[in-house]
Design a binder for these strands. Sequence first.
DNA 1: TGGTGTGAAAACATTCACAGCC
DNA 2: GGCTGTGAATGTTTTCACACCA
Lengths: 233, 233
Amino acid sequence: MKKERALTIPSATVSRLVTYLRILEELELAGEPRTSSSDLAERAQVTAFQVRKDLAYFGRFGKRGMGYSVALLKREIIDALGLNLHWPVIVVGMGRLGHAIANFPVAAEYQFEYVGLFDVDPQVVGTSIGNLPILHMSQLPSFVHERGVKMAFLTVPPERAQATAEKLVQAGITSILNFAPIVLRPPLSENEKDVGKTKTWHNVTVENVDFLAGMKRLAYYTHDPKSPAVEEV
Amino acid sequence: MKKERALTIPSATVSRLVTYLRILEELELAGEPRTSSSDLAERAQVTAFQVRKDLAYFGRFGKRGMGYSVALLKREIIDALGLNLHWPVIVVGMGRLGHAIANFPVAAEYQFEYVGLFDVDPQVVGTSIGNLPILHMSQLPSFVHERGVKMAFLTVPPERAQATAEKLVQAGITSILNFAPIVLRPPLSENEKDVGKTKTWHNVTVENVDFLAGMKRLAYYTHDPKSPAVEEV
DNA sequence: TGGTGTGAAAACATTCACAGCC
DNA sequence: GGCTGTGAATGTTTTCACACCA
């Protein structure tokens, strides 16, 4: 008899799992064989309840009274996140930011691997970064199809991000790490339901990396809200 | 008679307000004088209910049947987020990433302004970026105190991030935009309650910018969860 | 005894329906 | 008629208490 395990790990939990994984790597490097929910909690700055609940979404890995094996728990989180799989990645938009990202040693992180770099500027198409040549966008659809690439880092200028994203999805990309400070959306007249924090778009997932947004949120949490928040009635 | 307005805008709402603000800027640039909750919703990829609820946390800016004035709503969100204030910012850690960030024209974003750059490496201390000299970390406490700086961008290597963050807070910094892929935490034996998504630390707020974490979350949302999620019972 | 796993409760966030006003 | 503002309902996430087991 088969029973489905919870397919849906809450998005907040997914974020924390990434954090726990990083902590487990540190513990392993430090030679610590075991940890506990309260130890993980302090290092991740959450509660021990939260850690146990997060882990319970996809299994039972601890020993009561003993805590968790660092090596085992690390392996389980890697599997749960899909980081045991090979992830070929393309970088689209080879300006300053694209160059910086393409030079980052992403291969050190599990099985992510840059396999293609793309741009439209004839000045940069044909040059290389590391041993990867920068290809023209016109070659992208066949490249993505042949190599089975699903994940793209979008590093084009903001005003071109939407149009480029649409091309990526058309070519078969399903996961976009969007560095442009805009909200990517489906081509007009498409209505799909959002799923959690990460929005879907024809089964497309977008994650945003946006330090300007973080900077503005910081301003809110830092400014004294008392004075403007008192009003005359 | 005075009455306090809701001091607490939910953190999820704060994030969306930043998005709405960006959209309002675009609309203003495009010469659109008015918008509506459904227009904003589509552009921000949320529901119209959500937009109206978010705005209702800090005021009533619309006209029934007419929607919102782009200029007015933009001003209100700017005020609510504290972006009408001047934000002097220091960048700490002038490696590749710190250089890239320091070269970014952050002054184009409201009243943020880089006022100081810091590092410990004698090779870079004394050199300049733009018209700002890179100062040694030993000068940071007096600089922060004299200039009344509250916000810092932390771009040091991961292994130095925690110790550097502690120095920043000791010097009087209350807001850290953390680019290091680690969780910053208070010096040992300090227990403070978390407040929402953004954690507090002696009234310190940390926002994280971490593309590797985004990349790993993407892997989870992209990998087919069906096969490993079915288990024998 | 110590620390996990989990059902139940509380807190929080989103969705909805519709009253109210331009 | 159209679109906002908002209490109520729903759904999701976090917190908690405690049963259970090495």
